[in-house]
Each structure stands twice: as C-alpha cells, then as structure tokens.
Design a protein around this nucleic acid. Structure first.
Lengths: 205, 205
DNA sequence: ATATAATTTAACCAAATGGTTAACAAAAGT
DNA sequence: ACTTTTGTTAACCATTTGGTTAAATTATAT
C-alpha cells in the first residue's frame, strides 16, 4: 500500500518531495534517489520532469527565495509610518516563516555556497531589494526628532536579525532550551509583538 | 614551486585545509580530494592522519563549536551586573567571530542537518550551556525595577540574534548592500557598541 | 478499435568519490 | 652500516550517484 496523496499530479509530488529533501539536506547533500523515494516514484521520472538536479534545485530554491525576499522589499517600499512598518514587517514575516521554519537557513546556506548564482538567479527578475528608501525614512525620523540618533543601517540589521535569527538557530535553541515544536511556535508567535515593542522602546525619544 | 608554509607540520596543513573546505562547502559538499589539494599533498595522506572523512569532520566541527559555545556560556555563568554582561558579551563575541565570520553559519547548518550528533558530540563534555542563571538574573532586575517587564527568554533571544545573525547572513547583506570586506568589518566593529546601547535603551526604565 | 503521444519503470552507464594497498622515501633508532 | 619506524605517493577498488535508454504501460486522439 503506497501512500500516494490523491489528486496530486506527479509533478507536484516531485516538487513536494524535492522541497523536503533539498531544504533538509541542502543541494550537496540531497540525493535524486531520496527525492524519488520520498515521492514514491522511479528515479528516472524525476529526470523526465526536471531534466537534472541543478534544474530541480533551481525551482525549489527560487520558490523558497520568492517566499522570503519579496516580503522584505514590500516593507522597504511601502508608504507607511516607520513604527507601523516595523510592526507589520515582524508580524507578516514571522507569519510566513513560522509555517516554513527551515527556509531561512536553507536559503542563507545556499547563498553562502555560491553568492554569484544567487545574485544572478534571484535578482535577474527586477525584484532587487531597495533598502535606500527605508534607510532614508529612518534618517528623516531622526531629523524630525521622533527617534533617537542611530545609524539607519544598524537599525535595519537589528530588525532583520531579531526577526529571522531564531528560525535559523531553531534546532540549537530547541536542544539548548528543551523546547518542543509547540513551545517554539508559541515563543515565535509572542515575538510578533515583542520585537516591535523592543525596537520602538529602543529608538523612541 | 609548491607554496608550502614553512614550519608547518603536515597534520597542521591538513587541518587548516580541512577547515577551509568544510566551512566553505559543508560536510556533504566537501571532497577529500579538495582538502588534499588545498593542503598540497596526496589524498591518501589525509586518510593516513585522520582515517576517514567523518573523523576529520568531527575534529573541525568540534574546533568550530568550541570557539563559539564556551563564550556564550561564560556570559551566562559570570558574576557581573546585567548591563555589563550584555556589553561584554557583544564585544567579546563579535571580536571572535569577526576573525571567523563563516563559523556560525557552518555550525548552525551542521546542527540543523543532524541535531542528535550535535547534542551528543558537543555536550558530552560537561560544558552544556546553562542559561537558567542568566534568565534568573533578568527576572531579578525586573523585580528590582531597574528594567522594564520583558520575557527573559525573549531578551536572551534578542541578544544572541543581534550579535550573531549579521555574520550568518554576511554574503546576503554584502551583495544586497554592496559592502566590501572592509566595510562589512567596520560595521560589525560598530555593532560592538551599538547592540548594547540598543538593548539597554530598550529595557532600561 | 487502433494509432499516437505521454507517462512510468527496470536496467544500465560513466563519472565521481571515499577509502585501501603496496611500494617507495625519509627519519630515527641500533 | 643497517634495521625499523614513520611519512608519502601512485595506482587501484568498491560504492555511490547523476543521468540515460529502451521497453512497457497508460492515456488521448482519430
């Protein structure tokens, strides 16, 4: 009795399996056979649909990148008051990542392995992040005197670090602090409000 | 003309090469041949000194882990006022990592690939982190009224996230913000003072 | 029904890769 | 001097792995 999900096309099954295997083991550690097994099909079928490992990996990587990067850029370019922007970024970002907790480490690791591939593949399609606008907005708030003097770049690093890192270090934190899935999830939920509060307390005058 | 560093034993050359290759490509992506080439020796020599890939990897991984984890624990267990602890943690930790910027991602990634190996190998030697003391210290400060009400665990996550994440995401940040090595380094130097200031501003009453 | 196209599989292949062996060279011990 | 131990190498081996092929099966069209 093979447990094939019904109403799922073969291509979908392969993609689902590939995501599982690639995200868990990385490009180098993933095996085409593992992907085929996970999908419950013959290995040659994987090649039939996606030609080779690199192509299949490209699809999965782009899927992951497209789940993570546009959200960041949205915030950068949105027309919103600074504090509200920070709040919305945390809530929306954590909401996405909480359902895919292993994506950030996967993407960061693959970028690290081959930054050029990343640069070319991820941003050839015009969605190149433009943090300038966000940085300028911070400078404006400083001049207005609504927030303390702080390097806009440092503030940006802080915001992203606080939001993403706990997911990157999820297994470490869980082992170190003895947290099960539910506890971890709950703590991340808390952070949706905790991070904005923390940041705003730090910069508000 | 083979460029062998003088006064370096073969074993040292292998370890240095292995570190380079493992940290850059990860356990799965590293090739014994690459390590031999990087060390400028025959592949069999690598096996002569370290038997197999897993053993050699173990040495490199432990070396990396021992550079990163004890520092964290030191701060947890030290007898210091909270604010001073935070300051010293940032300064000391960034000082270490700035010279080995790729270690955190390497270690986190390998932990992610096999959390059990990590648990057993890294903490079998009694240096298991004990964050309890640090968390209690935070609670005490809250009751004393010197800092705002905040979940001690969240504050701990914030401290570590702010300190480590920029290194984990180094290639991404560099590509995104167009930073060369010197600029990146300089920004990390700034963070030694920026992070404590940011945190203390956020929690001080 | 039957031809045609799309899908799926078992068997196979070549290259890559971790690891071994046997011979050789250098150092150290006697 | 020569024996033994240690270090080093080229050649080799077995397994893994990405990828191919040809045949079989299923779906689609006529």
């Amino acid at each position: 009795m093979v447990k094939r999900e019904k109403d799922q096309t073969t291509e979908e099954r392969i993609l689902k399996a590939a995501k599982q295997v690639f995200v868990r083991k990385g490009m180098a550690g993933a095996r085409m056979q593992d992907i085929a097994d996970e999908a419950g099909i013959n290995k040659a079928l994987v090649h039939y649909y996606f030609r080779n490992k690199e192509k299949l990996f490209g699809v999965i990587f782009m899927e992951a990148a497209n789940k993570l990067f546009p959200k960041i850029n949205e915030i950068f370019t949105a027309e919103l008051p600074l504090f509200e922007k920070i709040e919305r970024f945390c809530v929306e970002y954590i909401t996405v990542v909480i359902e895919n907790p292993y994506l950030p480490l996967f993407v960061l690791n693959e970028i690290n392995q081959d930054p050029e591939y990343f640069l070319q593949k991820v941003w050839s399609g015009r969605s190149r992040p433009q943090p300038e606008k966000f940085l300028q907005q911070i400078e404006r708030e400083i001049k207005k005197g609504t927030i303390k003097r702080i390097s806009p770049l440092q503030l940006l690093l802080n915001l992203i670090s606080l939001t993403i890192f706990p997911f990157v270090a999820k297994p470490m934190f869980q082992k170190n602090l003895g947290l099960d899935e539910l506890q971890f999830r709950s703590i991340m939920e808390q952070r949706k409000k905790e991070i904005p509060k923390f940041i705003i307390d730090a910069i508000k005058k």
